[in-house]
Amino acid sequence: MRLHDLLRPDVSAALSFRTVRMRLTALYGALFTISGAVLLTITYWLVRRTRPGVIIVYDDSGPEIRDHLNRLREAQMRELLMQWGIALAIMVVISIVLGWLVAGRVLRPLRTMTDTIRQISARNVHERLAVTGPRDEMKDLADTVDGLLGRLETALDAHKRFVANAAHELRTPLTLERALLEETLTDREATLESYRATSQRLLALSKDQGRLLEALLTLAGSERGLDRLEPFDLSDLAHQALASTRLEADARDLRVITQIASAPSAGDPALAARLVANLVDNAVHHNTTGGHVEVATETRAGRAFVSVVNSGPVIPPQQVGRLFEPFQRLGGRTARNDGRHGLGLSIVHAIATAHGADVTAHARPGGGLSVEIGFPAHSRAQVPARAHA
């Protein structure tokens, strides 16, 4: 491998001490310099402590020869120390160059991942780093980024579907309103009764759009998470939901069975109330005449549970998960003439996720649906006070 290939990628930026490569190079050079200096110091100290050999002199010039040998030894030690210093300086330069090359080689996969991530946008979020090789820190980092990109791709796809479905749901009543207005304006024989009938239809469409917008706002608000924790009891929320659907349940001749016990939890009481209300409303509305609805709340295994079971049409087991997605209905996209938009259970799922609750749903063999949601249980004394903005 040529030196030019190693130093090629933006050398001017890499020479900045703020880069990891430059810091690693400085660290390598500093460690080698310190270790080399310590080694030379120890070696010099050991050599200096070594006693010179014994010289036998047969005349009176012994002291002079001894002084001469001492001076010669001192000169040799100074020369040796200078040579060692030069060698250390040369090796420091070599270690810096080698440290630079080694740091570049180690950081090359990271630069490759950085360049790949910079090229990923909303249009090609399906691309992955797909780093191969041994299971090391770089491979773990690449796999983590790939997992993040996968979750981001899923979220973006869900967002695109949500926007497309919301646009369709809003466009349909707007188109119908425009058609009604144009029909009324072009009708030269229109009477007061026809104007009144058109106005009533427009009012009904407006109310339907209002319910849709309210559901969309609730869904968006619940997906942001919770900014406060307040106590609530699922039993109280279940009683409220049953009271609000009593008229429709009586009109459908539904048998309502309740097993409601105290089930305290904490979170956003308004969102929790909407969750329970949507569950009960879904069970009552998507039912058969003379069917039944079972509502139960309890505390079990340290969690607060609310469960709603209803009779109704047979639901394919593989379609249960789809019911918790926005704008999904078993009757297809044409099943909209009942004023429903397919957002009820998706709001339930979003609110449950925001509260850290578990959602369990399965289709009943004889028809209908069973949904159970487990909230983290809290005693009223343990629930923190409402946070102030």
Rank of each mutant, 00 (worst) to 15 (best):
D187G: 08
G53P: 14
V145K: 06
V276H: 01
R49H: 14
S16Y: 03
R49W: 04
R161N: 13
A296Y: 01
T299Q: 12
S95Y: 02
S379G: 15
A389Q: 10
G367E: 03
V280C: 00
I94L: 09
L275I: 02
N124T: 09
D233P: 07
T116K: 14
T132R: 10
R2G: 14
R196V: 03
I90Q: 09
A361Q: 05
A166M: 09
W45F: 05
A387W: 09
F162N: 08
V284C: 05
R48C: 04
R71E: 13
I315E: 03
W45D: 09
H126C: 00
E372H: 09
G133H: 07
T33F: 09
Q319W: 00
R201G: 10
R51A: 15
L212F: 11
V106D: 12
L226D: 07
V293K: 04
R228T: 15
E214Q: 14
A283I: 00
R322W: 01
S61Y: 07
G342T: 06
V57W: 09
R111S: 14
G221M: 03
I347Q: 13
G133C: 04
F232L: 15
R188A: 11
L254Q: 04
A266C: 14
D59C: 07
V47T: 12
N337T: 14
G85D: 10
R23Q: 15
T191N: 06
T198V: 12
M1Y: 07
S346D: 07
D227K: 12
S199C: 02
V280F: 00
G225Y: 10
